[in-house]
Amino acid sequence: MFEILLYIALFLITVAMFGLIYRVIKGPTTPDRVVALDALGITLVAVIAILSIILRTNAFLDIILLIGILAFIGTVAFSKYLEKGEVIENDSNL
């Protein structure tokens, strides 16, 4: 029963990820796509947590932290690019 429910949860999250991918492809503006990508990153974390329960291993748990950090940095870089047109600003008066 426990295993079956885990597989059902994994399936539902995959459906949710497909919905977010639909928004990434369609999204009328670029910020829409960034919102969907950010949510995709956090959903990926959830997928890995459920997978590591199904496989009964704790080898993947470090990846969770890594993907969380990468999703946040990606969002910050994207929104900075949208706002200023570049990610890392060069100080021209240096």
Partner: peptide
Amino acid sequence: RLVLAILFIFMTAPVSGHLIGRAAYNS
């Protein structure tokens, strides 16, 4: 590490929401 990940997501989620909102408004 899971506890750390939970804390990290809890702290950064509002920040990234705010950043996307501001970038959308300014663009």
